[in-house]
């Protein structure tokens, strides 16, 4: 393998990775949520959302929170965000609101989960509101968390998946842009 070919491979890999990163960051801009995609890790919303289901979140600040919405919120001092449903909203004249959540599968509201002294959630606690849902897809991340050794085969798998996707995209895009570049990504 000559140097030129080696550099080409490295660049190709870097491009694949940065494409994924760009898509994720692009989603963050479009949805205005710092976590546009979230995996359900709790049983609180069964039977609507199970462990390992994937949620697509948006977080438009001008769009007010209303009852019935499934929201993802991050509490002070807690690492993992919670998924729950809004059951009470009180909105002041100036537009600020406070709200209370409860998981469909729980008998009581989430006040017990909030930090001591916090009775209500406010807009700043919200990471995103669930707009879309795909089952099972997040299972991979749960498996990776539970069995860390799976990370290495998964990384290899991810690499091949990215390569495959990039091949499709590249051929799709190059179909429309007649570039004078050799983009052979086989």
């Amino acid at each position: 393998m000559n140097v030129r070919r080696f550099i080409y491979r490295v660049l190709k890999f870097a491009m694949n990775i940065s494409t994924l990163l760009m898509i994720y960051k692009g989603l963050m801009v479009v949805t205005r949520s710092e976590h546009p995609i979230a995996v359900v890790l709790r049983e609180g919303m069964e039977p609507a959302l199970y462990n390992g289901d994937l949620l697509f979140l948006t977080n438009y600040q001008e769009d007010p929170i209303r009852t019935g919405e499934i929201i993802v919120f991050k509490l002070e001092g807690k690492e993992i965000p919670n998924v729950s449903r809004v059951i009470k909203v009180h909105e002041r004249q100036n537009g600020t609101s406070k709200f209370l959540t409860k998981g469909d599968n729980n008998q009581v509201d989430d006040r017990g989960l909030y930090p001591p002294g916090q009775l209500w959630l406010t807009r700043k606690d919200v990471v995103g509101r669930a707009k879309g849902y795909v089952p099972y897809v997040g299972m991979v991340t749960i498996l990776l968390n539970d069995y860390p050794k799976l990370k290495y085969p998964a990384l290899v798998g991810l690499y091949f998946l990215i390569r495959r996707l990039c091949k499709y995209w590249a051929s799709f895009i190059l179909h429309f842009i007649p570039l004078d570049v050799d983009f052979d990504l086989n």
């Binding site: 009852t67 009470k88 909105e91 002041r92 004249q93």
Partner: peptide
């Protein structure tokens, strides 16, 4: 006090 209140009574 609050121009908008929403309270879930039943589900």
């Amino acid at each position: 006090l609050n121009p908008l209140n929403q309270v879930v009574l039943w589900d």
